[in-house]
């Protein structure tokens, strides 16, 4: 029951990207193919769970004055670990995500969850929070990646499926709108997705209100 509530929180009600508007930089930059989206999402989720757990463990140990410095060192440590592991065992993903893996250190989602949640809650709750927030981030990345890859490149599953991992071609070459793959398309797609979520949540709130009134 608690897990369900947390999951809903991470996915919709308190989604890190769509509602808290955190971690936009990496969301806009790497959401150009399904492979990138999943890879970045899973990397952030793993780092988020680990850093949440460790920071929750250390919450009584780290003095308040230097907590941010402490968090950043812990987060940077985990990011570097993930970066090294990717370079060693998934070089293709590492090359395609490029500088955005090291940049997870300054991804606001991780520091925000450390400060707002992990430093005040138990280890188990923090791990759960890391998992659900990570799932929320990954879900948004996947949605944006699929839309941008399809409209901008005309393929689905780039990096994993299709011949040479180039993705399954759905729209023939020459037709997809190139700009959708470029940063411009990231802003437009993210903006539309945020608008859609706002509209849906407002509508469900209105519905709840009318039901209460009735």
């Amino acid at each position: 029951m608690n897990f369900k509530k947390h999951l809903r929180d991470g996915l919709i009600d308190n989604n890190p990207v769509l509602i808290q508007l955190l971690g936009m930089c990496s969301t806009l930059a790497i959401s150009t193919s399904l492979f990138n989206g999943i890879g970045m999402g899973v990397s952030v989720t793993v780092i988020l769970i680990c850093s949440n757990v460790v920071i929750s463990l250390l919450r009584k140990f780290i003095p308040a004055k230097i907590r941010i410095a402490g968090y950043i060192v812990v987060i940077a440590g985990f990011v570097t670990v993930v970066d090294l592991l990717l370079q060693a065992y998934l070089p293709a993903l590492s090359a395609s995500l490029g500088v955005f893996i090291p940049l997870i250190v300054v991804n606001c989602i991780i520091l925000a969850r450390a400060e707002a949640f992990a430093s005040k809650h138990s280890v188990a709750a923090s791990a759960l929070d890391g998992l659900t927030q990570g799932i929320g981030y990954t879900a948004v990345l996947i949605v944006i990646s699929v839309v941008r890859e399809l409209l901008g490149n005309g393929t689905f599953g780039g990096g994993i499926l299709g011949p040479d991992g180039a993705g399954i071609r759905i729209i023939p070459e020459g037709y997809p709108a190139l700009l959708i793959i470029l940063p411009f398309g990231g802003f437009i797609t993210l903006g539309l997705l945020i608008a859609l979520i706002q509209r849906l949540s407002r509508r469900s709130a209105e519905k709840a209100e009318t039901e209460e009134a009735a």
Binding site: G70, V73, G77, L84, L85
Partner: peptide, 23 residues
């Protein structure tokens, strides 16, 4: 404050050294 930070940094460095050695 300094000792706490040094301990955290040392622990993280140790982990990083290990991972670096493996990969």
């Amino acid at each position: 404050l300094a000792v706490t930070l040094v301990i955290i940094c040392a622990a993280v460095s140790l982990v990083l050294g290990l991972v670096n050695h493996i990969t």
